[in-house]
C-alpha cells in the first residue's frame, strides 16, 4: 500500500517528513511525494502557511539514525551514518529539493534510506546511479540559483514621498525552482528596500523583516519601464569591445531563455550587427597593412579538426568565432 506524504514542499519540510518516515522504517516504495509546484500532482494545500520553514530541531539526528529508540526500529540494528557523510548528503539534498523534476523527493528519500541501510558512504560513491542523477540535478539548481542572483532586474514601482522608502519588483523566469534558495541573499543585500520577486511558479516578498513565499506564481507579467534602464542599456552598449566579438561565449553564459526579462538584451542584435563594421573602421586608421599570407604557407602542421576538438579546453574553443557567428555578423 502506498501513501502520499503531506509536507509543505520546502527542503526543511521534506527533511522533517523524511525523518519521521525513516524512523518508522517506511520503505521508499511505499510512499509518494507530491510536487508542491504542480497543483494537480498531489494533496498540497495552497492555503497552508509555511510553518515548516522554521528549523526542525533534532530531525537531522533522527534522520541520520542517532535517535532511534522507537519500538519499530528495534527489531533491526540501527546503523549510525557518519556525520560528515550525512552533511554531504544534506548539502546536495537542500538543492535537489528545488529541481524541476517530479522524482526528486523520491530520489532523495531513497538515498537517505540506502544510507541508513548499509551504504553510509553513498555521497562518496560519485559513480553510483542515484548519486549521478542527484549530482546532475544539484548542478542544475546551483547554476540556476546563481543565474537568478545575477539576472533578477528590479524595477522601481513606488517611492513613499514621506519616508523615502522604495518598493521594487522583478519578473524572472528561472529554469528550476531556486527562489527559496536565494531569498536570504536578496534579503541581506537589499534589506533597506522593499521588494517582490515574481516567477511563474512562486513569489517571494521582503517586508523589511521576513521573506515570505507563495506557491502561486504569475503566468505572465506586464511590462513596466524604469527610467534608469535606459542608462543601464547605454552603459551595456558602450562597455562592449567590438574588436573582441564572441557571441557564442556570451550565449553560453546568458542563454536566450533569460533574455525576455533583461532590459539590456533589447540592443543586443544591433550591437552584434554593428560590431564588424566598427572594428573595420578602427582598422582603417591603421597605416600598417596586416601581413598577407600566401595560402598554404602555414609554418606549422595544423592538427585536424577532430584533434583540435579533443585537445582544446572548452573555453579555448569559445575564443574562436564559429562559422555561425560570422554569418550573424555579416
Amino acid at each position: 500500500m502506498t501513501t502520499t506524504v503531506k509536507f509543505d514542499g520546502s527542503f526543511e519540510g521534506w527533511r522533517k517528513a523524511a525523518g519521521e518516515l525513516l524512523r518508522r522504517e517506511t520503505h521508499p516504495a511505499q510512499i509518494i511525494w507530491p510536487d508542491p509546484y504542480v497543483p494537480a500532482s498531489g494533496l498540497f494545500d495552497h492555503s497552508m502557511p509555511m510553518d515548516g520553514w522554521a528549523a526542525a530541531s533534532g530531525d537531522a539526528d533522527t534522520l541520520a539514525g542517532r535517535n532511534c529508540s522507537t519500538p519499530l526500529a528495534g527489531h533491526r540494528p540501527c546503523p549510525m551514518v557518519p556525520a560528515k557523510a550525512w552533511q554531504q548528503f544534506l548539502t546536495i539534498a537542500r538543492r535537489v529539493c528545488y529541481a524541476r523534476y517530479r522524482e526528486r523527493f523520491n530520489l532523495l528519500y531513497r538515498m537517505a534510506w540506502r544510507m541508513r541501510h548499509g551504504e553510509p558512504q553513498l555521497p562518496d560513491q560519485l559513480s553510483d546511479p542515484d548519486m549521478l542523477v542527484a549530482r546532475h540535478w544539484d548542478a542544475l539548481v546551483r547554476r540556476d540559483a546563481h543565474k537568478t542572483k545575477a539576472f533578477i532586474r528590479f524595477k522601481l514601482v513606488h517611492r513613499d514621498p514621506s519616508t523615502g522608502l522604495e518598493h521594487f519588483s522583478a519578473w524572472h523566469r528561472p529554469t528550476q525552482y531556486p527562489l527559496r534558495l536565494v531569498g536570504s541573499f536578496f534579503a541581506d543585500r537589499f534589506s533597506t528596500m522593499r521588494w517582490t520577486i515574481f516567477t511563474p511558479d512562486e513569489i517571494a516578498a521582503w517586508d523589511g523583516r521576513h521573506v515570505s513565499y507563495s506557491f502561486n506564481g504569475l503566468k505572465y507579467h506586464f511590462e513596466k519601464w524604469d527610467n534608469i534602464e535606459s542608462l543601464w542599456i547605454t552603459y551595456y552598449a558602450h562597455i562592449f569591445n567590438p574588436a573582441r566579438l564572441n557571441v557564442r561565449a556570451m550565449q553560453k553564459e546568458m542563454p536566450k531563455h533569460f533574455w525576455s526579462t533583461l532590459p539590456e538584451t533589447t540592443v543586443l542584435p544591433e550591437l552584434i550587427k554593428a560590431a564588424s563594421a566598427r572594428s573595420l573602421a578602427m582598422r582603417k586608421h591603421i597605416d600598417v597593412p596586416p601581413p598577407k599570407r600566401k595560402p598554404g604557407s602555414h609554418q606549422f602542421t595544423r592538427p585536424t579538426a577532430e584533434h583540435m576538438d579533443a585537445q582544446m579546453p572548452d573555453s579555448a574553443r569559445h575564443n574562436q568565432p564559429s562559422q555561425g557567428t560570422e554569418q550573424e555578423t555579416t
Binding site: 562592449f240 569591445n241 564572441n246 557564442r248 561565449a249 553564459e253
Partner: peptide
C-alpha cells in the same frame, strides 16, 4: 546597509564579446 559582498563575484550580464 545597502549591499553586501558574497565572496564570489556575480556576473550580472554578458556583452557580445563574451565578457
Amino acid at each position: 546597509k545597502l549591499g553586501n559582498a558574497t565572496g564570489v563575484g556575480i556576473c550580472h550580464s554578458y556583452t557580445p564579446d563574451g565578457r
